[in-house]
Write a protein that binds this DNA or RNA. Sequence first.
DNA 1: GTGGTCTAGACCACC
DNA 2: GTGGTCTAGACCACG
Lengths: 138, 138, 138, 138
Amino acid sequence: MKIPIDVSADRAEPMYHQIEEQLRALILSGQLAEGVLLPSIREFAADLSCSVITIRRVYQDLEQEGFLRTRQGMGTFVAKVAASDRERYRRDAVYYALKAAVEVGRRINCTADEIRSMLEELLTDYGEEGGSGNGNRD
Amino acid sequence: MKIPIDVSADRAEPMYHQIEEQLRALILSGQLAEGVLLPSIREFAADLSCSVITIRRVYQDLEQEGFLRTRQGMGTFVAKVAASDRERYRRDAVYYALKAAVEVGRRINCTADEIRSMLEELLTDYGEEGGSGNGNRD
Amino acid sequence: MKIPIDVSADRAEPMYHQIEEQLRALILSGQLAEGVLLPSIREFAADLSCSVITIRRVYQDLEQEGFLRTRQGMGTFVAKVAASDRERYRRDAVYYALKAAVEVGRRINCTADEIRSMLEELLTDYGEEGGSGNGNRD
Amino acid sequence: MKIPIDVSADRAEPMYHQIEEQLRALILSGQLAEGVLLPSIREFAADLSCSVITIRRVYQDLEQEGFLRTRQGMGTFVAKVAASDRERYRRDAVYYALKAAVEVGRRINCTADEIRSMLEELLTDYGEEGGSGNGNRD
DNA sequence: GTGGTCTAGACCACC
DNA sequence: GTGGTCTAGACCACG
């Protein structure tokens, strides 16, 4: 299975972080279903042009968080995620990001309407790239 | 002058970063006006319970960005900020934070309306703490 | 013959290890007597829902340890175990496990009495499941 | 501070595991109190004759478990452990080790008395090495 | 083939 | 000085 992940060594955020974040999102959004076999660490490392160690770390961290299950000699699989976790995550992830933005706005004395209009601007082309309907395969 | 800054060594973000960010916001929002004398490095370090080295770095970075002006033997002052910078900053800071939030939403298949309603929830008590009027005092 | 073995791929311990350990215990305790024919590799693998390779390894390891004897075309049998081995094993297996427990206790400053009382608690229902009489059937 | 840890690359258990286990025990037993600064990764690695990476992994794992707190540029410290965690750990660690031993005993038909007498034998010199009185500095 | 451990060493960020 | 990230590569364990 090809995993749609986009990382760059140029960003400030460490690569393993970027990968973890995106994999977590894929699992929690249901785009990577329970039981799916992920690429082997070597294969994935080649895909993303990074070291196998970086991928191993990703898999290890996510296993510890309960999102993956790896079995020696067999590979790494997507673990079962409680529906409640999925829901909570879905809400929290966006909520806290928005909250941070609002917080910044408050600090620099933005008006609420300024914030609203910026959001609308950002949402104009939102539906076109996959965020339209359901997508949540719960 | 007492600078209203809230930092914590417990957060993941490095302290110098937290301080710089908040000082920058205070200056760009006009809450720290041009010419204001900032605390001495030692005093500020004591206030924030951090190392003088950390404050030195903050002052140095912000001076390089043009927000501060240090004069030998006299101390560190808030520099003049161009109105255009202020405006650009005001817009960019919030805009990019919002953009990040929207990006997260797209990844996990949030609908645009879900995002809008979260924002409204966050904005309910927004005006009460200083975001009411017009923060551009230039 | 149906071999009463309980393994799970979910445990941290590798499967071949779990199986070997339990088979060894069955043989040394006399529950699998000399000359008993074990299931074929394929059959056993199916029973335990694991790979034939895993079973092959188990049989191989235990044959090397002298507990099994494989005869071409006839299958794998339980070998003769010296009474002394049986005795030594009986003692060692439990002894070293207890020793490890005591070692842990020492590290975290448990008192000897705390350890004793835990053991008693664990031994309350001990006799009911097979530990009653004399297990040495040599 | 010198940390009394005893590891060996010869054992089957991975070194990072051995170290983690012993550090965890030291913290949970109160022998390493909250706030204590641990050796730097390089120093500790030299002490234990292993790679800095192994130590970094140990520190990282234990931080994730909440036992350590590491701050870039400052070092790695013992975190606050809830008294309840300490108590639970104290009991569980020994209890499960004992349980495993009893389980082995049952499998090979040991009598309860055999197990008891082995334990007593192991406990004869128990008090002499620090497990006597309290030691729990809660 | 898979993942698990460990190595030596580089370079960066922080204090 | 501290820890944080990433590298390339070796060797072992597992299925």
